[in-house]
């Protein structure tokens, strides 16, 4: 079993807190009408991108989803520029032209969150093909959800990656709901990972809220991709605490289900693991949580005081 080093473990822990705090702040700003549009939050699922992206290098690539703020932050994006993008400001990563569902950070290998479920996966296979052809040892991670698993694009992407042995890791954040519908309504099987065998690739299902277990599985998948041993379908079982999008009253699920998953929250679980190994003292934890809160406050203030895009930007970047 591969365990994270202390540095990796603390980075994962910090990133989980950052995503949690960031997403909660986005919910507040959305409720206050400071952030417009469709906002899909990943509260409850932070452990998956935090752990997977801790295994990536700066020039590795990530194809993110519509529920992708956490994936982008975990890849190293500056909270200020992510928040500014959600506020639609000129200082955002996409100069206020992308928003939550088209959040790109080219210099960090973030290919973009994607407003079309499943559509990011063929693109992720494309960057993996480029890495293989150019022998760069870059790994691409394609995040997706259990809903996306049923799209044709996902099927085509998985097959193409398998047949070409591409350096890609498909990470399914299985949060049990596709939009507003529980999995049993749209999917007969209970394992997305089991489909991997049919594509001729490795498939692993893991408790996504168990960071050490997820780290072990993800490390093997990333190493396999980097060493030329082809793709892996990694399914991380987790849960979405908030609605499909902000404003969703979530009438379709029972309260006790949410409470049961809150009890399995990955953040305190991983904190206990860190404390047990002597990697995190109580005062360090307090400092880390405080620093993350200050970082999100700073990002929010940065977004609020940032300028709107100049009107002429509406006609820029249509062509390269």
């Amino acid at each position: 079993m591969r365990e994270p080093t202390r540095d990796q473990a603390l980075r994962i822990y910090r990133t989980m807190h950052l995503i949690r705090r960031f997403e909660e702040r986005v919910a507040e700003c959305f409720a206050a009408a400071e952030i417009p549009g469709f906002i899909h939050l990943a509260v409850g699922q932070e452990s998956v991108p935090a752990t997977v992206c801790a295994l990536l290098e700066r020039d590795d690539l990530v194809g993110a989803t519509h529920r992708g703020h956490g994936q982008v932050l975990a890849k190293g994006a500056e909270p200020r520029r992510v928040m500014a993008e959600l506020f639609g400001r000129a200082t955002g990563y996409c100069r206020g032209k992308g928003g939550s569902m088209h959040l790109c950070a080219m210099d960090l290998g973030v290919l973009g969150t994607n407003g079309v479920v499943g559509a990011n996966l063929p693109i992720a296979v494309g960057t993996a093909l480029a890495a293989q052809v150019r022998a760069t040892r870059q790994v691409t991670v394609g995040f997706f959800g259990d809903g996306a698993a049923n799209t044709g694009a996902a099927h085509e992407a998985l097959n193409l990656a398998a047949v070409w042995d591409l350096p890609v890791v498909f990470v399914c954040e299985n949060n049990l709901y596709a939009e507003f519908t529980p999995q049993a309504v749209h999917t007969k099987g209970t394992s997305i990972a089991a489909r991997a065998a049919a594509y001729g690739m490795r498939g692993v299902q893991v408790d996504g809220n168990d960071v050490p277990a997820l780290f072990d599985a993800a490390a093997e998948a990333v190493d396999a991709a980097r060493s030329g041993a082809g793709p892996t379908l990694l399914e991380a079982m987790t849960y979405r605490w908030r609605g499909h999008h902000e404003g969703d009253p979530m009438a379709y699920r029972a309260k006790d289900e949410l409470e049961a998953w809150r009890a399995k929250d990955a953040i305190p679980r991983f904190r206990a693991w860190l404390v047990e190994r002597g990697m995190l003292a109580a005062d360090e934890d307090e400092r880390l949580v405080g620093a993350v809160a200050a970082e999100v406050d700073d990002a929010t203030e940065f977004a609020r005081r940032s300028p709107w895009p100049a009107p002429e930007a509406a006609l820029e970047d249509v062509h390269a």
Binding site: L61, I123, T127, L129, A130, A157, N159
Partner: peptide
């Protein structure tokens, strides 16, 4: 394979990183 959506997306991804 016969997968227009898939291989077009592959082309887009490859183009995004410079091919």
């Amino acid at each position: 394979p016969i997968a227009e959506s898939g291989f077009t997306g592959v082309g887009i991804g490859a183009a995004m990183v410079g091919l």
